[in-house]
Design a binder for these strands. Structure first.
Lengths: 248, 248
DNA sequence: CTCGCCATACTACCATACTAGTTGTATCAG
DNA sequence: CTGATACAACTAGTATGGTAGTATGGCGAG
């Protein structure tokens, strides 16, 4: 049996010892929640986590606070801390913010142009993403996808924008990891990446914006299906009609 | 002499006792930094603040961590915690994110329409803002301005968007409070608010978007002037040319 | 058998204690 | 007088203790 704690321990070992215990815990727990190692609804506890990693409760507590600000756990005073269920509303709101910011980024990239080394890196990332198609390595693709979008944002010098995107991505990625190792349409997503880069290089703002919007609306397709298949992962008492409301 | 600590104490008393000590401290310190009661560069210290409010170091520490995530202080381990100087780059990046999100909000508001009670509240806020012109009550206007934008975001059901806006606003508001009680063009800003609401009611997406963008680019006008007048408030070694770079 | 109460065992929050690292200063050697 | 060095006085980071509130299970009364 593959114990959950074992996997968490592995992630813990991967973190850098130069970071503070608080930051290391935050990263480990964040990753674990996003990748569904810690399923929605699971109760955590300062003491329990502290014991598991042989640290004191205080840095654990601080990591919990940070996670609650990211909307990944809910701290109920004197009751406990729980991994929040996936909320369709939260997912759609996160998607909304992400589209807003990433469209602005790609508009700026197209209007002002990107430095050649950034374009080179984007093309490099596209090539490496293509190599994920055949073995259907979804996890690896997700990592490269994140780097693709990060490169774009930092390429136009918008670090705060990337921070925001990274923050809201947590909500969205949790949904993506639900569908692993299913038939994520890697090839289609790469095509969309290619379209974005091509539009930037062609200096076609409207096209670049359109390509980015289309790319970021893929989740509208998969979300209803996932709600059906994994109802226990989602916040109950939410109606499905939210999605139609959200599509512009 | 009006002691700084006295003002902080007053803010402290205003906070609700139902909140946790950590949250109360966070709000007080955040407000104090934004309103320049705690000037850029000032050294804070967990112990010092803890003693001032008669609480222990722990919640102070947690408030500091939160402030550092908001980009308002810098925690240097084993050295100290400092109110960060205003960075032109950070201001421009915050403005970029804000424009991206608020434009998306106003587009959605125009496309989907706003509930009548929201429109009513917007008009009410406009009226109350007008009453700030004659006494030139800039502080009061800023509060109503914040409520105006908050009402818009929540009016289209985008709470996450508002959270992001609120977060980046901290950087921008600190600049605004530099110019208080100067000749902030309250009347012009209200006119821009009126334009936004009018465009939403006319269901003119392009116009609404344009009005919002113009509104949020006002800071381009005031920033260079403030850098000149208050150089000690700003991060040194930053060139002024950043602004031209940022204007689309 | 059912309902209400109470003891118990949790929880997170805050306070306090201790550790480890940085900085400025005073002292002493050259 | 100048330089290096040791020490004192800070800092934040982590660990541990105490408190108040909440959930729960069992027991007794009806």
């Amino acid at each position: 049996m593959s114990n959950i704690n074992t996997k968490l321990q592995a992630l813990w070992q991967e973190t850098s010892e130069t970071e503070s215990v608080r930051q290391r815990l935050y990263h480990v727990l964040r990753q674990s929640i996003i990748q569904m190692l810690l399923p929605p609804g699971k109760a955590l506890s300062e003491k329990e986590v502290a014991d598991a990693f042989s640290v004191s409760r205080q840095p654990v507590r601080e990591a919990f606070i940070r996670l609650s600000e990211a909307g990944l756990v809910e701290v109920r005073p004197q009751r406990g801390t729980y991994v929040v269920k996936i909320s369709q509303a939260a997912v759609l709101e996160a998607r909304f913010v992400r589209e807003a910011v990433e469209v602005a980024v790609v508009r700026q990239a197209t209007a002002k142009g990107l430095p050649p080394e950034v374009l080179t890196e984007l093309h490099d990332l596209l090539e490496r993403q293509r190599r994920c198609i055949e073995p259907h390595d979804t996890i690896r693709f997700y990592q490269l996808d994140e780097r693709f979008h990060k490169t774009l944002s930092l390429g136009v010098g918008q670090q705060s924008a990337w921070k925001v995107i990274e923050e809201v991505r947590a909500q969205l990625d949790r949904v993506r990891y639900l569908s692993v190792p299913d038939t994520t349409p890697i090839a289609r997503l790469i095509d969309q990446h290619v379209d974005i880069v091509a539009a930037i290089e062609d200096r076609d703002i409207a096209l670049a914006e359109q390509a980015m919007r289309r790319h970021l609306r893929e989740i509208f397709v998969s979300l209803p299906d996932l709600v059906q298949r994994f109802p226990e992962m989602f916040d109950a008492q939410e109606t499905i009609s939210l999605i139609e409301e959200a599509i512009p």
